[in-house]
Structure formats: C-alpha cells, structure tokens
Nucleic acid binder design. Structure first.
Lengths: 189, 189
DNA sequence: CGCGTTTGCCAACACCTGTTGGCTAGACTG
DNA sequence: CAGTCTAGCCAACAGGTGTTGGCAAACGCG
C-alpha cells in the first residue's frame, strides 16, 4: 500500500500535470484523463496514487502566502512591501490561480480561500495594528484589492492590467493596501 | 419558427431559472436539466426556444453597468458616486455574478468581462480626465478594485466583507476608486 | 533463484451531459 | 368547422465523466 520510490517519478508527473491543468482550466474542466495524458500515465494510476480527483485537487490547492513579518518594516512601507511580496508570490506559485479559478464555483475551494485570509493575513494585521476587532475587516479589505489584482491580471487577463510592469503597478497598488492595513478607520480620529 | 405569445410564459420561466442557476453555479455546473426542472418545463423546450445551452447563457450574461454621467458630478465625488452606483447595480442585477462565476474558466465569458471595462468604463474615464492614453489603464485599475469587491462580497462571500453595510464599506471603497479615476499618475506632477 | 509485492495497462462499468426526433393534444386561422 | 401550425412531452442517442477490477510484467527481498 505505501508506495515505493520506483513510482515516485509517476506520482510527481501527475502532481505537476494536475497543477498545470487545474491552474489553466479549473477543477471541473480539468479532466482526469487529460491530466494523466499530460503526465504520460494511465488514468487509473491517478486514482491509485491519489484516491480520487478531489483528493488530487486538494493536494495541488495548498497555497501559503508566506507573508513577511510586517511588524519589522517601517509603518509607512507596509503597503509597498506587501504589494511587492504578493506579486512575486503569485507568479512563483500556481496555487493562487488554481484556487481562484475554482473557488468561484466550488465551495471547498472557496473555503480554502476564506481560510487563507482569515488564518494567514488577519492575525498579522492584528499584531500590526493592535486592533483585534478591526483586523478581520482590514484583512477582508486587503483581500478585495489583492484578489482583484490577481483576478484581473492572471485569470481574466484584462489587457491594461496585464500590460503594467511591477514598477508601474506597485505605485498604484501599494497605497491602497497601505490605507487598508494601517490608516485609521473612516470616521475615527 | 417565430414563437407565439402562448409560449411566452415558458420562455420567461426558462430565462429566469437560467439566470438563477448560472448566477449560483456557473456555466458548467448549471445543467440544462436543472434549469428546465426549475422552470417547470421539459429540457427539450430549452433547446427549442434558445437553440443551445451556450446561446441561453449568452442571453442571460448580458450585463450593463449603466454608468451615470461622471462628468456632471463634482470632481472630488466621482469615486463615491461610482462606488455607490456599482454596489446598487450589482445587487439589483444577477448579470455581474453570472459573468464573474463563469469568466474564471470560460473564455467567452472572460471576453465579455473585458468588453465591459474597455467599452463602458474606459470611454467615460477618457472624457473625464481628457487623457485618452491613460484611460484604459485607469479603467483596468478600477476593475481590480471593483471586481475584487464583487468577488469577495458576492461570490467568495468572505465573512468580514459580507458583514459590512454600504455605509461602512463605501468610505473604504470610494477613495480607492477616486484615486484610480482622477488622481495624477504616480511620478507625475 | 523464487516468491510476493508493486507497477502499469486495458477494458469496462455506471452515470450524467447536451442534444435530437417523433408523437399527441391543443390553439388559432381561413 | 376543417386544416395548419405550435406547445409540450417522451424516449433515446452519442459522447464524455470519474472510477473500478483484473491481469501481465517488472522489481526487490529472502
């Protein structure tokens, strides 16, 4: 039952093909047969090594923001640092695209999305602002702008958003995050 | 071939059920059989009246932002006016949700999304700023924030974003749009 | 070497999908 | 009232889906 090293190339080929297919097509349109074909493997191998299509998806849809410690950067720079980090992180890892392409129609994927912002981002903001209650709201606002950029740039591929370089995009992108992260809430001193 | 008034109730029931199903489940998971069942109609009627599932989808996925004339409001208020308008527009019409749920995996739907921002929003911004070249970029930036809010609030349903009332959300949301719409580009006078 | 395990392939299953054609009953037109 | 067209239903098709079991070959351990 526990698999040997001999099948490791096959298992990794499947995982790689699955990541690519899920990122490009989403859960529903990425078929087990297509993934297996890309990996040069029989479809039944996918089931043997990963149990089911859903379990395979769960393995490819693990995404970690790997946030830097925002408390150790100057308070005026947190927006720029976060914006820069997110852009690099998204382009180095398919995970966000996999999740985003599927979360609009699949509740499991949407749950993972919610968990990322509630579990990885909100706590950071809480220690950053010392405001436990407002942290969740600020994390949500950051999500609207951050996911909006990811959606338009990597998924929908809106031409004017794709055309921007990092150097052009960040001066627009960062101040918004800065405001959501640490600016006083509207209507407060 | 041209249908009579007698079948009009059935055709409208199909359209209504299709809108609801496409908005809730996206194109792929909304089946013709489920739509027909919701409409109290045989699946074959869907084909007779709308030709195919894709053509039915095309009919339900027509979305118009119905933008107000931004040139006639004080320049300092365009962000707030647009933010307010978009929230109301999205909640009164399924079209945006239908499109958003499907555009992440379907290129036809993504094309419609691109057309909306390039065709409805960008021209308005061009006349507003007098900057034809930068208008597309500004429209794209507005799209990142606007679609990000729609995605998090209506599709992903991130709890902290859903919890906000219009009165709470707009003071956060509007200044971002304001900046993207009319503020000078970063690095310019 | 010989035996048990693992790998991989093939074929098939059961199900669900969009879509089609033919039939009956009813409504409208002349 | 006779004839024509439309509305609606039923059954079926053809194709694609995830998933399963069995069987031959290759491997590795004793």
């Amino acid at each position: 039952m526990p698999f040997t090293d001999r099948s490791l190339p096959a298992r990794e080929a499947i995982l790689g093909a699955a990541r690519a297919r899920f990122a490009a097509d989403g859960f529903d349109r990425a078929t087990v047969r297509a993934i297996a074909a890309d990996a040069g493997v029989d479809p039944s191998m996918v089931m043997r090594y990963f149990g089911s299509k859903r379990q395979l998806f769960a393995r490819t849809a693990e995404f970690d923001l790997r946030l830097p410690d925002l408390t150790s950067v100057p308070r005026d720079d947190v927006g720029r640092v976060l914006a820069t980090h997110l852009l690099e992180r998204w382009e180095a890892d398919d995970g966000l695209q996999i999740l985003l392409r599927t979360a609009t129609t699949d509740d499991d994927a949407a749950d993972r999305m919610r968990a990322i912002f509630a579990g990885q981002l909100a706590p950071q903001i809480a220690t950053l602002t010392g405001d436990g209650a407002g942290a969740a709201t600020r994390a949500g606002l950051v999500a609207t702008q951050a996911l909006g950029v990811a959606l338009c740039r990597y998924v929908l591929r809106l031409p004017p958003v794709v055309a921007l370089t990092h150097e052009q995009l960040i001066p627009w992108f960062a101040p918004t995050l800065q405001r959501y992260l640490v600016d006083p809430a509207p209507g407060e001193p």
